[in-house]
Design a protein around this nucleic acid. Structure first.
Lengths: 207, 207
DNA sequence: TTACAAACCAAGCGCTTGCTTGGTATTGTC
DNA sequence: GACAATACCAAGCAAGCGCTTGGTTTGTAA
């Protein structure tokens, strides 16, 4: 199943807003602005202007500004969990599965949905405690995927550190790429970057 | 030279404010608040209350709120660069030097100066472009330390990935520990965590 | 055509923000 | 002990914030 097919089926199930609709367009612009300026520095007037409506009209679609942030995060997790699962199912060995997960997460962060993903990572604190709890539940499914694969590698003796520590280190390392990785200007492709991450963990690239 | 000695000499050179003085106390509280709530959510009234003065009186010490953020960052980098250099000089082999750097950075982030270090990483975007450029210059010295050590390991064939990529991954991974690592409740000590990072990179712990 | 809801506008309210101002203690120096 | 300089207070301003309100347009279906 292609990335686009996955997105379409999520839209059909009403788990993700159609980016062509009013709500979806707003969420997309919100993700862009939140990433660019941060949640706090983005005003409801900025958000409204980005989709060409008055600031007050926003509150017809969302009750509060925070609800917009939460929606961006929830939909991002839903999409990326689905993408991760698909990427993993296509791989055979634990090593290949790990590569698939790394590659998928790098793509989540640096690809088309990257803005929303960066928001998820860097605007976490702006979410109220209640909303944080809700979103965390969704993340657990996602994290379980990683721990399974890392656990298998650990059992094979090919990973020297604890899976849960490695996963957390990778969360930081991969998220951080959003601050420096610029595929457009020079050198490293996404696959190249994935190779580098694998090499760092002691898994040489298989050419 | 102990950590405290390093701090004292920096204070003597006027590169870092004495935490006992008015300015130093404010910067310490600012770091705490900026990390806890984020720069934007922290008001000048919060900052003033934390050191027991009126909000307007802040502007006798700093011209703008942003100047406070910048001062926190600048002094943090100065201190940590000195700490890193000291940690490295005490080590012999490249592997030991790497361990010293990892350990020092983990301590920077999760130790006493951790609040300021976390601010440096996570509030970066709140700094104006001009200030960012100033602070970046200071960071370069700091980063060169890492690249030297990683380059040496690469030459020894003990590191499979590119030094500059590894450094950036480590920046993310180590910074991220601030969001999850809680030494007080259970398990992992700072040394244990350092071992885990080294193990992840393929350097088993030497007991 | 009518009926009705969803989507939006225009205006602005109440509050908080960073920062300023004019004046008063407090401190160090000779 | 005089005298600056430094540190602070009390009050408040102008601007910007999230959000509300009352009313109008647009889309949909009978």
């Amino acid at each position: 199943m292609s990335q686009n097919q996955i997105l379409q089926s999520l839209i059909a199930e009403n788990l993700v807003s159609d980016p062509k609709g009013a709500r979806g367009r707003l969420l997309k612009e919100a993700a862009r602005l939140f990433r660019e300026k941060g949640y706090e520095r983005t005003t409801v007037r900025d958000l409204a202007a980005a989709v060409g409506i008055q600031s007050g009209s926003l509150f017809h679609h969302f009750r509060t500004k925070e609800e917009i942030l939460k929606a961006v995060m929830v939909e991002t997790i839903r999409l990326n969990t689905a993408l991760m699962q698909a990427a993993m199912e296509a791989a055979e060995t634990p090593k290949d599965k790990l590569r698939a997960l790394v590659r998928a997460e790098l793509e989540s962060i640096n690809g088309q949905t990257g803005e929303a993903m960066a928001v998820l990572v860097f605007e976490w604190r702006s979410l109220s405690a209640d909303s944080q709890a809700d979103v965390l539940e969704l993340r657990d499914i996602y994290e379980a995927l990683w721990l399974d694969v890392l656990g298998a590698l650990r059992d094979q003796g090919r990973l020297l550190a604890e899976p849960f520590v490695v996963r957390r280190m990778l969360t930081g390392a991969l998220s951080w790429t959003v601050t420096w990785y610029r595929p457009e200007r020079g050198g490293l492709t996404l696959d190249g970057l994935t190779d580098q991450v694998m090499a760092m963990l002691g898994f040489p690239a298989t050419p």
